[in-house]
């Protein structure tokens, strides 16, 4: 290999290495700057659907961050949102339309619609979420302590 040839090779290698290193550094930065499509881990508010699709005397479980939340529309106009895991042994609670109460089928724990533990083994109330209806859209948010 001639002197000139070696010199060229080193310069080419510098150019190639330089460009690939720049790519290796700027690719992650570019990806980083594009915001991820996924919801944030601990949201403070959550849209849970239209009020028209949520008839009276019905309930559904929605996901709030990593916690399940039970959304209830009682026989009247009121909408309640509470953590859905029973405070006794973490079963998912359900809405009892007849009694207008929340019950846990695992050990017959009973809560009222504000989450207060009424009877059975649950030691603590369910945590309540604030519910607002904005443009027919139900929005729940964490209550301020």
């Amino acid at each position: 290999m001639t002197k000139i040839g070696r010199r060229d090779f080193v310069n080419y290698l510098l150019g190639f290495g330089g460009i690939s290193a720049i790519a290796a550094i700027f690719y992650p930065i570019g990806r980083y700057l594009v915001p991820p499509p996924i919801r944030e881990a601990e949201p403070t508010t959550l849209k849970v659907g239209s009020i028209d699709e949520f008839p009276a005397n019905s309930s559904k479980i929605v996901r709030f961050g990593r916690k399940p939340v039970i959304l209830i529309r009682d026989s009247g106009e009121n909408i309640h949102a509470l953590t859905a895991t029973c405070t006794h042994l973490d079963c998912i609670v359900q809405f009892s339309e007849d009694r207008q109460q929340i019950i846990c089928a695992c050990h017959n724990g009973v809560y009222d619609l504000t989450g207060k533990n009424v009877s059975g083994p649950p030691p603590k109330p369910l945590t309540e979420f604030a519910v607002k209806v904005i443009d027919k859209e139900i929005v729940i948010s964490q209550m301020k302590a």
Binding site: P28, R31, V34, P36, E40, A41
Partner: peptide, 21 residues
């Protein structure tokens, strides 16, 4: 108080290469 830790969690687990940065 209510967002610092959560946003760090978000960065390290949800943002592309957030953990790396």
């Amino acid at each position: 108080e209510n967002s610092a830790y959560e946003s760090m969690q978000f960065i390290t687990s949800k943002v592309h290469f957030g953990w790396l940065i």
